[in-house]
Every structure is written in C-alpha cells, then in structure tokens.
Design a protein around this nucleic acid. Structure first.
Length: 845
RNA sequence: GGGCGAUUAGCUCAGCGGGAGAGCGCCCGCUUCACACGCGGGAGGUCGCUGGUUCGAUCCCAGCAUCGCCCACCA
C-alpha cells in the first residue's frame, strides 16, 4: 500500500489540477466540512455570500469574492471556529425580468400576451438552470459554502420573510404610498431606484424660450433642454435676489403654445448665473421642479405617458414620441416667434442601468420607504467603529449616500419578484398582510385585489444575513449564526446592498449583521476597460480553472486584489499554477526522501536549519496577520517567497548535502526538519491554495484525515533567530543586535533579517563558498574501477569549477542568505577533499 | 460638480523616508538524480510633471497633467 503511493509520487512529476481537484472537493463534501453545527458551542465565524444573480454565468468578480471569502472561511475553520458560509442566489427581479422579456421578444411575443402566470413559470425554469450552474462554479473554485442550506431570495421561507418585513415597516408607517416623481424606465415599463440610474453624456441643445407676461409687453426668457415639457409647465421661477426679475415675481406668465397662465415665483433653487436666470417649472417631468412645485403648491401636470409618448394632455402633439414632439414644439415656438436662441449643450442624462433607455421622470403612485431614521441608526454604528470598512476610505462612499438619503421607491411594475403584500378594496383602502386577508382592514369589504407590483430586488437582498437563517422564525441557526463577521463585496453595491443590510439588520434583529466590510478590487479587462459580457471583455473564470487549476486561479485573483481597480493579468494566474507545481514537486522530493520511521520534527542542528525554521515561523505569523488585515495580495506574495525562495531554492538545496551524505543521523535529522517545515507550509497555504495542499497532505506519512479539518499551527515569529534572541536579552533593536553578533566574529546566522541587514553583513561573509551538489563520497571511494573513478573525478572537477565561478560572482553571493553561505563552508571543503582523494586513488591504480 | 484610486523595467504589479524590486517577456548557458510550469547567469527604470518639507524623497505635503471607477436634481 505504502509502496503504491511511493510509485504514484514518483510517477507524478507534474501537478495536474484537473486530475485531482474534483475528487478532493468530494472528500471535503463527504466529510461534512461545509456544514456548521449551531450546537457546537464554539465561537462562530460567519460570512454570507453575496448571492449572485441568476442571470447567467459566474464572472470574475464572483471568482474574486469567492477566493477571498473561502480563504477567510478555511482559515477560521482551521482556527477552531464554528464556521458558516451562507450560500445562495438572488432572484434579481428586474435583471432576470429583462432577460426573459428579451427571449419573448425574440419569439415574437410579449409578457402581456403570455400572461403573468406563464411568465413566472418560465422564469422559474430559467432560474433552476442558471442557479444550479452558478453553484456548480463555486464548487469548482473550491468554495467551502454551506451547500446543504442553499437559499434563494424567492424560496418559500424567504418570501415569508420579505412579506413580514414589508408589513412590519408598513405598520410602523415607514413604508407608505404616495404620488411622487419617480425614475420611470419606458423600456422596462417600470420605476427604477435612484441607484439604478446611470448618467451618460448627451449632446443636446439648450433652447431659450420667451414667455409673454400677462398684462405687459414684456417677456421672460427661460432656458430648457426639454421644450416638449413646456406643455406641462405650471410656473416660472427666478431667484429671489435677482434684480432683473424682481418686479415680475407674483405676476403671471403665459406658457407658449398652450397659453396657460402660470405664476412667476421666487425660489432659491434657481441659479442666477445659469441660462437666463429664469427657470420653467414642470413638476410632472423633472425631479427638481417637482420639489419646487410641492414647496409652492403648484399643480402637477403630465404630458408624457408611461410609454414614453406624449399623452392626451399634449393636444396636437399627443401620440408622438417625446423626442419627436421636442422638434415639433421647437418648430412651433419658432413659428410663433418665441424661440429666442438655441445653443449646443452637453450634459449628463439619466439612463436605465438595465435597459439603457433614457429615464423619464414621471409622477406616479408608488410605494416608498422612509429611510432617514433607519439610516441614522446605521450611520451611528459606522461612525462609532463597530462596523468598519476596509479600506477605510470606502466609508466616504457610504456616508455620502447615507447622509443625503432620500425615500426609496420600492415598487416595480414587474411580475418577477416579491409581490407587494397589500390588498385594496373597492373604496381604495389598503390592507397589508403576510397572507391574503379575508376582509378590508378598514371597511370590512371582502372584494379585495392585491397590488400587482413587485418589490425592488434590493428590498429582499437587505434581509439576506438573517432571512437565510430562518428569520422571522427563531431558529437555532439564527440564534447561533447571527450576527456574522465579515462581508466581502465590491464598492458598486455599498449603497445598494451593504447600507441596506446594515439598516435592516439593526431594525429587525437589533444588531448589526457584520462588523467588517471588505471592499474588493474591481477587475478590469486587460485593456483597462470594464469587464463585461456586453463589451465582450469578460473572461469566464471557469476557463481559467480548466486551464490553470482552481488554486492557480485563486492565487492569481488574490494577487491582483491590491488596489481598487486592477487590470486582469493572466500572468498572475500562471504564476499560481507554477507555484502549485513547485510546491508539489518539492513535496514529492521531500516525501520520497523520507524514511517511514522519521517523524516530522524541528531539528535545528545547523545554521540553515535554524534559518529555515525562523523564516517559516516569521512568515507564517506574517501571512496570517496579512489575511486578518484583508491584505490577500500581500499574503500570497509572502507565501510565494517562503515556498519558492526560502524553502525550495535554499533549504531543500542545502539539505541535499546531508541527504546524499554519509552521516545517517544527519540524514534523519534533516529529513525530519524537511517534513516539519513542509507540513507547516501546507497548513499555512491551505486557506489560499486548498487543493494542492490537501493533495500533498494525503501523502504525508502518519497523517490521516483532511488538512482542511486540521488545526492551524501557532506561529512563533522570532524562533531560532539569534539576532532577535540577542536583542531581547540585551534590550536592543534587532539591527543593532545583528551588527554586534557580526562584529564579534560569530557566524551571522541572522534569520528574520531584512535584506538591508544581509547587505550590511556581506563584507564578513563574502569570501566563503556556496553549496554545490557533491557526489556521494562513499560511493565514489568504494568504486573499484579506475574508469568509474575517472568519471567521478571529471564530474567532481567540473562541479568544483562551477562552484568557484559562482564564488567569483558577487551578485550571486549577495543574493544568498548569509547564514547559508557561512554554513556551507565546510561542505565545499569536503568537496575539495573528495577531488583530492579521487585523484590520489586514480594515481594509485 | 463631489469622492476614491492609479501613474515605478517591454507587460501586469509590489515597495512607500536612506540599497529601485517581483512575476512574465527578452538575451546567454544548462536533458545537474523534486520540478524545463525547471536551474544558473544577464540586459533593461532620470519611480508622470513642477514646487515644498527633510541631512536625505519613488516614498511625506501642495499644485498640475493623464487615465479609471463611484456618487451627483444647475434648467
């Protein structure tokens, strides 16, 4: 059995992720390691996965999030926490709705033709396919999610939670219905929230239009980019301090074309230095004008309908698209001699984030949520530091939004989503309830009709951290796993999602849902553009996993996640693949050297042993510190240096002289240390590179069980470091201590020294030799055949020459840790002795 | 308009007060018994620009330029 595994090790000279990763994942799953036990009594560590939309494939952002969260989760588990990573997907109301509507259009039909029930049924089919695919992709990445409790924001229990939340907020009068101006997307046929409006540059024209003054020959000239809304004007406004117009305030202006008499009002909103200083007020079609209108009690007229076309109120323009009407209105103004000027005007215009259509601000009867009290409570938690953003600078985004928060329009004229739990009777009374009420709460009428609208997707997302645990039921899981610890997401949904989870967590659970909000980088395409499917700049993480392996993909993504925007660099994934292979092969070497009777142990007999142990402990402590500080790029970089440079380049190479030497005890000692170091490296690397480490672990002699379930070792930074020890004993700093050791002429086996320290010590160590691969002295000496001796001698002489060439190269010596240079001196001496011995034997023959 | 961030080797990025670095790419040499996804050697940077602070600045401060992202109700 053991021999079979040796054979396997010898055979597999290359790490092949595709051949092992899926089996390893199955072993973790079979061992139940993704589950969390609410009754274990151990302190918990909980992260809720930002639920991906069931719109399609996993993208690079998900893969990055997944890599980060999985590292945190695995580390927490190894540290003994009861660890839960909440798993699930989001119904993504408007986004999925748009996908299905597009499909229907392609089939030559519409949702209205197929009907609500058939439409919803179709969405569920879509969701069962995509949802499963997305979860499968997380598995390929190695994510230790709690797959058994996968949730969906539209599953039965979740729907109840959403309705419960709505009704409670309704009862507190934080949710109310009102006729207000909203962002209307004609393409979606629905309202969208402020955060779903994207501003795009538009080259329009700014028109100056003369409004006659009643009872006067005067005119007042306003500037507008939307002449078609003139038809809905209900006032003209000027600044109260504007001397040019002061005499007109209180007068009546006559709206062109419709000849409506409207008041001239004074409002401080108007900028005196913009346009003409006079502003036409159209409460029905402009959010600012709406506010001004409400302040002054103006009537609210609408001339543009929900279809984006001019309505019956628009007279001769009725039926035209707004853009078409604009030109016609301008023509008419020109004909009437009321168009005073026109100039090119560039500005930002709101477009729907989903459909790309131009947003039409319209007055509409919608459900709103009062946000200011909720926001104040959430802000207090961030201001006090109980909730912290990493990096801190991202708090600006949060506060900027929260400090200026406005009511949230939560109703959407869509079918896919949580239908608003409000029933209306014939008299228009509203009754909110978590299930269909028998009668109107006010008049007792039994003829009730449910509000057809659904809720904004983010309404349900806001409850994710506790609705997934069973809320509003008081479940064991809710008790054990709320509040959670960290939230990992990108900054584009800080306000859409993070802020709202904080508010709802406080409101419904009385406690913040997490303390750490880690804002990840956003990975751009290699050319610097945004990575998106529509631009064709997206890269499927699954392709990377297939080509490089999951460890490599995770490594690369973590390494890229340093600044807030980073360009995708496939080279970093490749680096990860090479590191995994390097670790595999170094491990293979160590394991194949290992005698079954040798136990891993830190046997610090020589300088290089002390050196590697020190590097290991110091790096281990630092890597964990960096992960705890959410510096994954830094952690991965250090791990790379530890594995490749310290362990493989130096220690394994230095160990060879003992492994291939005559001294049996020395061989056993160094093997024990190699195993010890390897084992600890595997544990350290596991949260970051779970697959390859678990695979190697399965070959460790005398280690049963899974690495994933093993304990993370304690790390003792400073172990085996004479400089540190000296510094501690003599109460001095490390650099001074190291300098003193060197000055005293001792072997400067300085361990955790920075590079500068090595340089400082170089003059004392530059004249020594380096390790070379000496042939076994005993083997050569025992060889009776002169030809064999001649061959060995030739090899040995060549090696010696190479060694001397290296020694002549200062650059090479500068790169070698001083301690290793020093420690290898005697070895080279032995090597020279070997050449002399072989020469003598040859002469004797 | 406001906020955040970036500008360091051909490329992607670390470094952030005294030595300019990594990976990839490039050049030279190696089928050295863990690894050619490797080993050894090497070329290649006035650290965006201008000032300031400092004994000393890629690193701190100010301004400018270019790029990116987020937020934003001047018609």
């Amino acid at each position: 059995m053991v021999d079979l595994r040796r054979d396997e090790l010898e055979r597999r000279s290359r790490h092949d992720p595709a051949a092992v990763e899926s089996q390893l994942f199955e072993r973790w799953e079979a061992a139940g390691l993704f589950r969390a036990d609410p009754h274990s009594g151990r302190p918990s560590y909980v992260i809720a996965l930002p639920p991906p939309n069931v719109t399609g494939e996993l993208h690079m952002g998900h893969a990055l999030n997944g890599s980060i969260q999985d590292s945190l989760i695995r580390l927490a588990r190894m540290r003994g926490r009861e660890t839960l990573w909440i798993c699930g997907t989001d119904h993504a109301s408007i986004a999925v709705h748009a996908v299905i509507e597009k499909q229907l259009r392609a089939e030559g039909t519409t949702r209205f033709e197929v009907g609500r029930d058939a439409f919803i049924e179709r969405v569920w089919e879509w969701r069962s396919e995509t949802g499963a695919r997305i979860i499968q992709q997380f598995k390929r990445l190695g994510c230790a999610l709690d797959y058994e409790h996968e949730r969906f924001t539209m599953d039965e229990g979740y729907v109840q939670a959403v309705l419960e939340m709505f009704v409670r907020l309704y009862d507190k009068q934080l949710i109310y219905r009102d006729n207000r101006i909203v962002n209307w997307c004609p393409g979606c046929g629905s309202t969208v929230s402020d955060l779903e409006v994207r501003y795009e540059h538009a080259a329009d024209a700014l028109f100056e239009v003369r409004y006659p003054i009643k009872g006067s020959d005067e005119h007042i000239t306003v500037a507008t980019v939307r002449p078609e809304t003139i038809l809905a004007d209900t006032a003209v406004a000027v600044h109260p301090d504007d001397d040019r117009y002061r005499h007109l305030v209180g007068g009546i202006a006559i709206v062109p074309i419709v000849n409506r008499e409207v008041p001239i009002i004074a409002d401080e909103y108007v900028k005196m230095d913009f346009g003409t200083g006079a502003l036409k007020i159209t409460p029905g079609h402009d959010p600012n004008d709406f506010e001004i209108g409400r302040r002054h009690g103006l009537s609210e007229l609408s001339v543009i309908g929900f279809d984006g076309r001019m309505n019956d109120q628009a007279g001769e323009f009725a039926g035209m698209a707004a853009g078409e009407a604009r030109q016609k209105v301008v023509d008419r103004l020109f004909a009437d001699g009321l168009l005073r000027g026109e100039q090119p005007y560039e500005h930002e215009v709101g477009h729907c984030d989903r459909s790309g259509d131009r947003i039409e601000p319209l007055i509409s009867l919608q459900w709103f949520m009062q946000m200011d009290e909720l926001a104040a409570a959430a802000n207090a938690e961030v201001r006090s530091g109980r909730v912290r953003f990493i990096p801190t600078s991202q708090e600006n985004t949060y506060f900027h939004w929260m400090d200026n928060i406005r009511s949230w329009c939560v109703s959407r004229q869509l079918w896919w989503g949580h239908q608003i739990p409000v029933w209306y009777c014939q008299d228009g009374h509203s009754t909110a309830a978590t299930s269909a009420p028998a009668a109107c709460g006010q008049c007792g009428s039994t003829e009730l009709e449910r509000d057809p609208d659904v809720l904004d997707t983010w309404f349900s997302s806001a409850l994710w951290p506790f609705a997934t645990l069973g809320w509003p039921e008081q479940t064991d899981r809710l008790e054990a796993f709320y509040p959670g610890n960290a939230l990992v997401t990108a900054r584009d949904i800080i306000n859409l999602w993070v802020a709202r989870m904080l508010m709802m967590g406080i409101e419904f659970m009385g406690e913040i849902p997490f303390t750490d909000v880690y804002i990840t980088s956003i990975i751009q395409a290699a050319d610097g553009r945004r990575m998106s499917k529509s631009l064709g700049t997206g890269i499927n993480p699954l392709d990377l996993i297939e080509r490089y392996g999951a460890d490599a993909t995770r490594y690369g993504l973590l390494k890229m996640s340093s600044t807030q925007d980073v360009r995708f660099a496939e080279g970093m994934i490749d680096e990860g693949a090479k590191l995994a292979n390097k670790l595999w092969n170094a491990s293979r070497f160590v394991l194949l050297q290992a005698d079954a009777s040798v136990e891993p142990a830190a046997v610090a007999v020589r300088g290089e042993d002390r050196w590697i142990l020190s590097r290991l402990e110091g790096t281990g402590a630092e890597v964990l510190r960096l992960i705890d500080a959410y510096d994954f790029a830094g952690a991965v970089k250090l791990l790379y240096a530890l594995i490749w440079n310290d362990f493989c380049d130096w220690y394994v190479e230095a160990a060879k002289s003992r492994l291939y030497g005559d001294d049996d005890q020395a061989r056993r000692d160094v093997t024990a240390t190699l195993l010890w170091v390897l084992e600890r490296i595997l544990a350290l690397a596991h949260p970051l590179l779970p697959f390859v480490t678990e695979e190697i672990w399965s070959f460790m002699p005398g280690r049963s069980g899974l690495l994933m379930a093993s304990a993370m070792p304690e790390w003792q930074a400073g172990m085996c470091d004479p400089a540190l020890e000296h510094a501690a004993q003599n109460d001095m700093d490390v650099v001074s201590a190291a300098r003193r050791i060197a000055n005293e002429g001792q072997a400067p086996s300085v361990i955790v020294t920075p590079d500068t320290l090595f340089r400082m010590l170089l003059p004392k160590t530059a004249n020594v030799s380096l390790d070379v691969h000496a042939p076994s002295a005993s083997a050569a000496a025992a060889a009776p055949d002169p030809e064999l001796i001649r061959g060995e001698l030739a090899d040995a002489t060549a090696e010696l020459e190479r060694a001397r060439a290296k020694l002549a190269n200062e650059g090479f010596i500068a790169r070698a840790p001083a301690v290793l240079v020093e420690a290898e001196r005697d070895k080279v001496r032995r090597f020279e002795a070997l050449v002399a011995d072989l020469t003598r034997r040859l002469e004797q023959r």
